[in-house]
Design a protein around this nucleic acid. Structure first.
Lengths: 186, 186, 186, 186
DNA sequence: TATGAATGAGTATTCATTCAT
DNA sequence: CATGAATGAATACTCATTCAT
């Protein structure tokens, strides 16, 4: 039994390292050899833990969904004022910016992968809806406004992909403040 | 099999059709054969117009940059009130939603492609900055607010990628109204 | 009728220019486009005069055979002394050194081409035998010695392929003198 | 499917088998598939040992240079009389006739390959010069005469390419005897 | 369990050949 | 006749996957 736990733990460890690789190169342009090299193992070992390249992508998405917002609630304090709760969300988001950015890119790859295979986009839809529902619960704001916030944060990650090298943190702070300001006033 | 007279015109025609293909499958997962098939030509013809798959991506990005926002200004009426101008922008954006969405996906692919080749991200940075500058000119709003609008629209395109099948138009309308409302009040 | 003569004359003209191309790059590594470019015509025109790449090689070999030693006899004076006749041969050979060198390379290509197609080497054998016979007639020397001379000249062309850039002429003169000297003494 | 232990040894083994293939068909007309088939491996394995077709040719030439005349000296007895030493050389040459013939053809291919790439012919020049120098040392004959011998042997290999099927051995013997006779008398 | 050599189907690219103009 | 765009089979090369060690 402990053997299996270890194996699974290692598998997840490898999996999490794949996120960066896929985000950087794109799933389709990343070879199994590159992945193996990136993880510091041989291709043979890679195939011990994952049956195929396809399954790496799929398991990675599944894994991230499980985690997902869970991490946030495990740590997010309950705040009285809505403004405070919004700040909590944004602070958390900013602190894990790279991670969410990589996750975003992964979802795009996964989306294209599903499309290629002619599969319905149910998985990502589910992720998005669960995330949305949980944010509504936490923020206690109208659904449309929560959407607005999430959409904005997606856009923020995208923009940071190809611009704002040095001044990125400042720019993100400026933009998030703008968001908070606008929502406060409403 | 008619002899093409305007070689460059035809090249651009082919190029523009590549956008949809790359957006759907991702650059790395789209084969030259698929591209050729999608364009209704043979692989040989494809190579008659483009020296390599890589150059298709690069030329496509270059081509879209030239066009870029130019299309918008060619058609956008000058409005007195700032609110009207914002509506003009958003209406234009919504009307060309699919196109901008595909362009967004292409830029992500291009970004990863550049990263793979160890090239600086100057091209996309330039595109973004020019777009920003032109929107500032048109909207006559503070730079930060223009950023906010563009970021939001990016996020919108992303979200529509994997959700909102039927009710997409409504949802987009709701969200853009929210944006306009928030900015109006400020 | 004159039309045909013209066409044929032009075909031979093109053909003769192919010799240099094949000799330089090798038949297998020379593309039809390179040939066309080298001849200053389009690939379409090339196919007006030759049905296939293969046939260019074959026609070229055939053409050269017809010419072959004929050119020599058309010009070679009849000399009394055997030594003089040998000098005539060698002088002629040296004067057309590049041509014979290219022809040599062509024959090697042709030899490999025939082998690839599983064809007997009768053509080249025939060329060689006719050449030999004619040289015996002209030089009036024993068959074995004529062979010796021809073999030596083949070797000379080969060596000059990859050495003796500047001092080639001198070296060839030295070696041919050595040949004449050795044969004289016998 | 045994796991190869000595990677470099195996590489050289494969390499040496390429000589015959290139000599028979010519480098440009030999496909990687044919090579793989000829070596009894898959194309994948071929690329596991060689980065490109081009490099096979280049490595093959390099490898043969290293060996080169070394093999001769490893076995050649020291003879007193110059005539005896010449016989040793010629005997060795005749015994390895096919090998030298194939090497000759390879060098022609390599020469054309270098020319195609616009590279100076230094490699082959070097080989030839080293060979020449070593033969001068062994034979203790004047440089010009050694050249004469080597040139003659080159020519001999060439002639045997497209003639003398059955009676080849006899003819070679006759011609080499003629060479020895001529040089003896001088 | 881990390795990396081996495989061959699949990918990008080339090239002899055709054909509408 | 001449052209060069178009074709697709063939070529060089890659890469996910397997398997002996």
């Amino acid at each position: 039994m402990p053997k299996i736990v270890d194996r699974d733990r290692y598998r997840k460890e490898l999996l999490s390292q794949c996120l960066g690789l896929f985000a950087e190169q794109g799933y389709g342009s990343t070879t199994m050899r590159q992945i193996a090299q990136g993880l510091g193992v041989s291709t043979g070992t890679l195939y011990h833990y994952f049956p195929s390249k396809e399954r790496i992508l799929e398991q990675l998405v599944e894994e991230l969904c499980e985690q997902g917002i869970a991490d946030f609630f495990a740590q997010a304090p309950v705040a009285e004022a809505m403004g405070d709760r919004l700040r909590v969300v944004i602070t958390f988001f900013v602190e894990h910016f790279r991670f969410y950015q990589q996750q975003l890119l992964l979802w795009i790859d996964f989306h294209q992968h599903q499309q290629r295979k002619g599969i319905e986009q149910g998985v990502l839809q589910g992720v998005w809806r669960r995330t949305h529902a949980q944010m509504v619960t936490y923020l206690q704001m109208p659904s449309a406004q929560v959407d607005f916030i999430l959409v904005f944060m997606d856009g923020l990650m995208l923009q940071c992909l190809y611009d704002h090298g040095e001044g990125e943190a400042d720019w993100v702070a400026q933009q998030t403040e703008l968001l908070i300001g606008l929502l406060d006033r409403s």
